[in-house]
């Protein structure tokens, strides 16, 4: 464990807790894409299949449980909570996220480190995580501006993957044979997807005005 990875995990934890807190406190999920939340629940479900079979550390297992619990709770709130579900604008959140899952599954069947059930699903979860934010970013474009909690959520989510890239660089130089191209490329693509959002987030912060994404 290195400081970059710890910072990444804490930022990731903060992003899901910020979102869960927002939804639980104000009983609203306006501006949040259910599609992205469903994709994240699938990412964690396919990423942590080995939670019962392989034990790495208390920290690792605890974080996996928190991520699984929070992502499924957010989906539950948005789909089934009597008050929250009414604030979900389904006619704006129309990204066909199944179109994201199929290419990721096909790619995972083609490019992976080992052709085993767990490894292919784990690789699928990596590819899916890279693109899972797309429905949310599309929704933001549609709704034009975002409230600061959703902005913080995306900002933290992008930051977590940025820290992970620093972690991979650090591990590459400090651990012999630590080479995982698939993880690195997926993580880089994911961070690049956030890059333009970061740019507009920074502009709005600098000019101290509401975040307006270009059409």
């Amino acid at each position: 464990m290195n400081i970059f990875r710890l910072a990444g995990d804490m930022t990731h934890l903060a992003s899901v807790l910020v979102l869960l807190l927002k939804i639980h406190t104000i009983k609203s999920c306006a501006g949040v894409s259910l599609k992205t939340q469903e994709l994240y629940a699938i990412v964690f479900a396919t990423r942590y299949l080995d939670i019962l079979t392989s034990f790495v550390s208390i920290y690792n297992t605890l974080m996996k449980l928190i991520f699984l619990g929070s992502s499924f709770s957010i989906v539950w709130y948005m789909k089934y909570h009597k008050t929250v579900r009414r604030t979900y604008d389904r006619d704006q959140d129309t990204f066909r996220h199944w179109f994201l899952m199929l290419p990721c599954l096909l790619l995972a069947l083609l490019i992976h480190e080992k052709f085993t059930f767990f490894e292919v699903l784990w690789t699928f979860s990596l590819y899916l995580e890279a693109v899972a934010i797309l429905p949310q970013l599309v929704l933001l474009q549609r709704t034009r501006n975002i409230d600061n909690l959703t902005g913080q959520y995306i900002f933290l989510l992008g930051g977590y993957r940025g820290f992970y890239i620093l972690n991979w660089i650090y591990r590459y130089f400090t651990e012999p044979h630590y080479v995982h191209w698939i993880t690195w490329i997926a993580g880089l693509v994911q961070t690049l997807l956030y890059a333009d959002f970061f740019y507009y987030y920074f502009l709005s912060w600098k000019n101290n005005k509401k975040l307006q994404l270009p059409a």
Partner: peptide
């Protein structure tokens, strides 16, 4: 590089 060692990350 055993791919299992990469599973120490979340």
């Amino acid at each position: 590089t055993k791919s299992s060692d990469s599973k120490d990350e979340l």
